[in-house]
């Protein structure tokens, strides 16, 4: 069966750390960073890149549109 693998890129300097994407992710890929960005927010970061399925839920709910999503079919 064909499997999909996803990846996200977060524009950390524009992230305001609202954590809405963390709630929206079905596979718990996203977590909050311990360090802060240029504005002083704990930005979102990819904690479990292996689990990402590229569903784009995080990017769709992100109020600031900082997430870009990629998805690729992988033959298993």
């Amino acid at each position: 069966m064909a499997k999909v693998k996803g990846a996200i890129v977060i524009d950390v300097d524009k992230c305001k750390g609202c954590e809405v994407c963390v709630e929206a992710c079905p596979t718990d890929v996203i977590g909050m960073a311990d360090e802060v960005n240029i504005k002083g927010y704990h930005f979102a970061e990819v904690k479990n890149p292996e689990d990402c399925i590229g569903c784009a839920n995080c990017a769709i709910v992100c109020p600031d549109g900082v997430i870009t999503v990629y998805r690729k079919k992988v033959k298993a």
Binding site: G6, A7, V9, A59, G65, T68, V69, Y70
Partner: peptide, 13 residues
């Protein structure tokens, strides 16, 4: 490998 323009699913308009 996944992050390339051909695999783009969603980006801010």
């Amino acid at each position: 490998d996944i992050i390339s323009d051909e695999n783009l699913v969603y980006k801010k308009t």
